[in-house]
Design a protein around this nucleic acid. Sequence first.
DNA 1: AAAACCATGTAAGATGTTACATGATTAA
DNA 2: TTAATCATGTAACATCTTACATGGTTTT
Lengths: 187, 187
Amino acid sequence: MKENTTKFVLLGLLSRRPLTGYDIKKTVKTRLDYIWDLSNGQIYPTLKLLEKNGLITKKIETRESGPTRKVCSITNRGIGKLKEWLSKSAHPEINRYEILLKIIFGEQANIDTNSKHIQDFKTRNTKLFETMNQFENNLDALPEQTEEAFYVRLAVLLGKSISKASVEWADTALTMLQKHGEPKIRR
Amino acid sequence: MKENTTKFVLLGLLSRRPLTGYDIKKTVKTRLDYIWDLSNGQIYPTLKLLEKNGLITKKIETRESGPTRKVCSITNRGIGKLKEWLSKSAHPEINRYEILLKIIFGEQANIDTNSKHIQDFKTRNTKLFETMNQFENNLDALPEQTEEAFYVRLAVLLGKSISKASVEWADTALTMLQKHGEPKIRR
DNA sequence: AAAACCATGTAAGATGTTACATGATTAA
DNA sequence: TTAATCATGTAACATCTTACATGGTTTT
């Protein structure tokens, strides 16, 4: 892959509404959480690059109170680039489950440690499920069912079902671990 | 995070049996596929580093036929480091679902494109599920149920349920997309 | 004869994180 | 008064990928 995906995350978000770097950060964190993540060190330089390439424009907003905001808007060229990217096949998923790494090598640790890892994982995924669920409810409550809402809903549904599966796995794994730790019965 | 996770993947694998860089690459690809991935450019330099730090040792194996192999074995210090890492909390999962990015912004593309993305995703996950299933069967068929097998099984179970959930989502999403694309009935 | 596998490795560049600098405003 | 939120950004570093170099062996 030659193309930097960060660019397209930004273009995608800006294709909906003008946003500042700060807004983008927040949106990615709250709405794209389990899908993709971006840090400041990627957002601001990429925004600069996009502007240089004429894919977005920036408008400085000075307000009486608070810091100035630089609101970014996508240009027609930007929309063109986004569409071009959307039409190409997606790269396969990249997952980094550090917890599974620790579980896989679990024979080198004690059961409590392993159990703790799984519980943490469960907590994270329970939260994620609740967030996604809340998000779906918000979509349902929308006065108008837009195209945007339809596609966002699709993504939310995957988030829901993966986090649900993860929580269920955690429960199973915890039970298995407990049984595994019990002294063997012999007669 | 200051600690490079790559190191611990290698230490974990070597805690089970001595391996060459090439073996590690294959093992990660076939067995750790959806959990973590490593490229040659990470494996070989990290192996060198581990040796320098006394966490592994290398033994050069010259054979009459074929290239020489450098078989790496973990040292006691290496085991110590691994255990230390295992006892610490895992970092939260990192996921990069490029496909969901493309779906979320799907209103900028046509239905066929979006449908294609979902189908590709389904294909990938169907394959993954089959691999995991096969893997579980292999574990069941093992003459002896070791500690190693127990923990590997836990990881495989998560892989199975996530890929299953993904395939199911793909089916739902495809149906929703089709309905969405149908002309509205009015009367 | 070609392709795939065995096997080790490096260099250049792309990508990403962390920590910091700056400083006002608002909520607890 | 402390913490959080708003807001933009950079520098140094850490991490990771891609493409290549090398060359033998085995399978198709």
